[in-house]
């Protein structure tokens, strides 16, 4: 059988075997959709989003959880190991990307610099060099602009001090740099956003989230992506950050 005939037969089989069920579902689905929309609109003044956020809240922690323990002693190291065991090696994390909800198979990343985060293991991998960890695309398309989320630590500078330095550095390469602000979503941090251009799909974007390590230093989260990917990779990185946890 030729490729064309086989392709045609696949199409015919899929159509014939879904004909009746699709027809039967149409009206009932519509009634349920109407009911669902009505219920969502009535359930809260702010609509469906707050309803979903409550559901999401069950699955993900909304803020950084700081686990206080010393890692300088043997007891401390044992305790750290226990804490690490508390985090499942893999779990499902709910992401919201471009209006769509996804349950994402996520893998635990335990950084040597003292943090844990869950990353989308189908799309990304972690490249470590001991001081800086980068979550990069597993399968980037050819010619695609750079996309990554980098995690590092500056043990000596507060988030506010670092923000001044990073903002000045960004101004050299980016046409628009927004002044640092404090944010609480996806976690408590000082946030800086920079974009070069802003009209072309591949215009680069850098976001910094600067998180206090509670010891006078800062965890630096740098996200690099591009305009077209703001709702895609940008949203995915922010979803990962909801589970970012510092092991102090």
């Amino acid at each position: 059988m030729t490729r064309e005939r086989f392709d045609k037969r696949i199409t015919e089989a899929l159509h014939k075997m879904t004909d009746r069920a699709a027809y039967e579902m149409q009206d009932e689905n519509w009634q349920r959709i109407r009911k669902g929309i009505k219920e969502m609109e009535q359930s809260s003044g702010s609509g469906r989003r707050s309803h979903w956020n409550r559901k999401v809240g069950i699955g993900v922690s909304a803020a950084v959880l700081v686990l206080v323990l010393s890692i300088s002693t043997r007891t401390g190291q044992a305790a750290l190991e226990k804490i690490r065991q508390y985090f499942e090696p893999e779990k499902i994390v709910e992401y919201e990307v471009e209006g769509s909800r996804e349950d994402v198979d996520s893998r635990l990343q335990q950084g040597e610099i003292g943090y844990v985060v869950y990353y989308d293991q189908d799309r990304y991998k972690v490249v470590e060099d001991g001081k800086t960890d980068r979550i990069v695309m597993r399968d980037p398309a050819e010619g695609m602009p750079e996309v990554y989320m980098e995690i590092s630590q500056d043990a000596d500078k507060l988030p506010e001090e670092l923000a001044v330095k990073l903002e000045a550095e960004l101004r050299k390469d980016f046409s628009r740099v927004e002044a640092p602000i404090n944010v609480s979503e996806p976690l408590e941090a000082v946030f800086i956003h920079a974009i070069n251009g802003g009209t072309k799909a591949d215009d680069p974007i850098v976001d910094y989230y600067l998180i206090s390590n509670k010891k006078g230093g800062t965890f630096i989260i740098k996200m690099k992506y591009f305009l077209e990917a703001a709702e895609g990779h940008g949203s995915r990185f922010r979803s990962m950050l909801r589970d970012f946890t510092i092991l102090e």
Binding site: D19, A21, M25, Q26, I33, R48, S100
Partner: peptide
């Protein structure tokens, strides 16, 4: 609905997926 049915292999799950999709 056809696509949801072929993907989920269940009319009940396909109906849920289609309803959730259009609400979203």
């Amino acid at each position: 609905a056809r696509v949801a049915l072929a993907v989920t292999r269940s009319q009940a799950l396909a109906a849920d997926a289609v309803q959730e999709t259009f609400i979203r």
